[in-house]
Design a protein around this nucleic acid. Structure first.
Length: 572
RNA sequence: GGCGGGGUAGCUCAGUUGGUGAGAGCGCCGGAUUCAUAACCCGGAGGUCGGCAGUUCAAAUCUGCCCCCCGCUACCA
């Protein structure tokens, strides 16, 4: 039994996440965590809301709330939505909680002790009316290159020119529109990443198994050369620059930059998890993170969208390695591309796309889980359309899987009654089926191990199809006329298949798997993972009672699709 | 602009140490079947593998140039 630590990239706090965010990290990590738990491994699966930074402050302001209340409320909303989607986090924490505060202070301290942090003074745009320094993209003005009037301080959206906020003509605050802005000096802490260049490059090289996308992004940053990075910001909401409660002189109104503290929350949430389980000793969480305290054999898996890769392959490792302390670093890093909404971006402000809460108002979680994972954006950005979604759900879930369960349970009830028939022996058809499944289950398992989700679920779908093929050939509705024992054996085999399908499908469609187990009065928590298909198909010997279920998946009708298209801003 | 990813059947996508007639699912057409959610099962049609040029006995695969889409570009996260 291996010990596997799995973390999903942390969803940002400013509102409920859309389907693209879901499939970008939280859902694939959940599927993998569920799979590894069923495999019998000791899994710790963690996630948290990422709560600091300018967008949180602004979102709170526009909601008319204090940022503290806003975050608390939004955390609750995201936690509920995640639970409703079946995300099986062992703990869903908050980057604003105490453990992360302590850890972030700790890392800043040891990095400074190691000579990797220094103070630097720089000039930055300050908005007098907003009483705050403005991050580059919150300064707007006229582009010096093309004259576009709403160019952002980091880049002009019109001509694409990269800018410095001081380049802008007639700059104004994007927050309030105020033109009362000026350059002010401000003091920040810099993490001297350049000194860690070789060390991080070596660490990256030591992980040849990372996906192509992950490696190329990491190597690109290293090739360009790591730059020292400012790790503090002029904000109120965040982790104060104050070691052990002692505020640092000149940093009274500053906090650590959200990208400095957010990855540290992976460790913080592990402490939160331990505390939630009444372990205050510090020993339990360290078993997952400190290689000198029992974490030397941990396999650590991170899952994230491609925008997060640089921070996980370069920035966070700089923090960890620079501490000179024996922290566990990531072993396997799965990165995904974007899911697009009809080829364009999901957008809250323009009401384009479906968000997690809305999705569940339309259909149960497994419909979404299946489609998103079977079509996960692994090799490239993938397009989500309602039409494709309906097609996939109707075909894979309703016609192939749902119908299989329905047809055999109904047939059995009609001809043999509501218990597994005991007569007859397995013959050629069953041996053929077992041989087929032995291969495809093995392939499916391997794809899941590799986190090749599209391939895995194409294989799983093939396994469901094999059930229908088997029934077609065995045709108990025909054989029962001449050989009732043979028909009984076929039905018994098919009923056993339902349980096998439930076990194999559980990582991706857990709610449906539970229903399938319930047909036979089984508890899905007992699900393991089948190595021996013949044994799995001999689980029921005959005589076991069952209750034919309602239809597992209703079909999506064209009228529904049209209605949703209108509601969610679908285009062509 | 720079860097990275991608452009393969109507749709969504597999497919690189270059080599048996280019694949899957869906959709479409046909057949078979009737246990089942007009479901399942079998078969078929359908592609100048973004464009041009080159290397090679042989290119979806390697090289060069070009076109298009997406992402990142360190103070959005």
């Amino acid at each position: 039994m291996a010990r596997i630590l799995i973390t999903s990239a942390l969803p940002y706090i400013n509102g409920i996440k859309h389907l693209g965010n879901l499939v970008g990290s939280m859902l694939p990590s959940d599927v993998y965590a569920r799979f590894q738990r069923q495999r019998g491994h000791d899994v710790l699966f963690l996630c948290a809301t990422d709560e600091h930074g300018t967008p949180a402050e602004l979102a709170a302001r526009s909601a008319g709330q204090t940022v503290r209340d806003y975050c608390a409320e939004q955390h609750d909303i995201q936690a509920k939505a995640g639970k409703a989607f079946g995300l099986s986090f062992d703990h869903f924490g908050r980057s604003s909680n105490a453990p992360n505060h302590q850890l972030t202070q700790h890392f800043a301290k040891v990095l400074e002790d190691n000579g990797l942090i220094e103070e630097r003074v720089e000039k930055q745009v300050y908005s007098v009316d907003d009483q705050r320094f403005l991050p580059d993209r919150y300064v707007e003005g006229e582009c010096p290159n093309c004259g576009y009037e709403k160019a952002r301080g980091d880049q002009c959206d019109n001509c694409g020119r990269l800018l410095d906020p001081t380049d802008l003509k007639n700059p104004y605050s994007a927050i309030s529109g105020s033109k009362n802005v000026e350059l002010r000096e401000t003091r920040h802490l810099y993490l001297l990443q350049a000194q860690l260049q070789d060390e991080i490059a070596e660490w990256v090289e030591a992980h040849p198994g990372w996906p192509q996308l992950t490696k190329s992004i990491a190597k690109k940053w290293l090739k360009e050369g790591l730059r020292d990075r400012s790790i503090t910001r002029d904000l109120q909401w965040g982790i104060p620059v104050a070691y052990e409660g002692e505020k640092r002189a000149g940093f009274e109104n500053k906090v650590f930059y959200v990208w400095f503290d957010a990855p540290i929350e992976y460790i913080g949430v592990t402490q939160e998890w331990a505390l939630a389980n009444d372990d205050v000793s510090d020993t339990e969480w360290k078993r997952w993170w400190r290689t000198d305290k029992g974490a030397e054999d941990i396999r650590y898996v991170q899952v994230m969208g491609k925008d997060n890769v640089a921070f996980h392959t370069v920035s966070f490792p700089a923090t960890i390695l620079g501490s000179r302390e024996p922290w566990k670093t990531v072993d396997t890093l799965k990165s995904l591309n974007w899911l697009t909404w009809y080829g364009g971006k999901f957008s809250t402000s323009e009401n384009r796309g479906i968000f997690m809460d809305q999705a569940l108002e339309l259909l149960p979680p497994d419909n979404w889980r299946w489609h998103l994972m079977a079509n996960a954006p692994e090799s490239d950005d993938a397009s989500f359309t309602l039409e494709h979604f309906a097609l996939v759900v109707n075909k894979d879930l309703a016609d192939v899987l749902g119908n299989f369960v329905n047809r055999i349970t109904r047939f059995c009830k009609a001809r043999f009654g509501e218990e597994v028939p005991a007569a007859g022996e397995y013959g050629e058809d069953e041996r053929g089926l077992i041989a087929t499944l032995q291969k495809s289950v093995s392939a499916y398992t391997e794809y899941m191990e590799q986190m090749e989700f599209r391939k895995a679920f194409a294989e799983l779908r093939g396994i469901w199809v094999a059930g229908n093929e088997y029934l077609q050939v065995a045709a108990p509705w025909t054989t029962i006329k001449t050989d009732e024992a043979k028909a009984a054996a076929s039905v018994r085999c098919a009923l056993n298949l339902i349980v096998l399908f439930a076990v194999l499908s559980r990582p991706v469609i857990p709610f449906t798997a539970e229903k399938m187990f319930a047909i036979f009065g089984l508890n899905d928590a007992e699900a393991g993972w089948p190595d021996d298909i013949a044994a799995a198909l001999n689980r029921f010997k005959g005589g076991e009672a069952f209750i034919p279920p309602d239809v597992l998946f209703a079909k999506i009708e064209d009228e529904q699709i049209e209605e949703w298209r209108q509601k969610f801003g679908a285009e062509d």
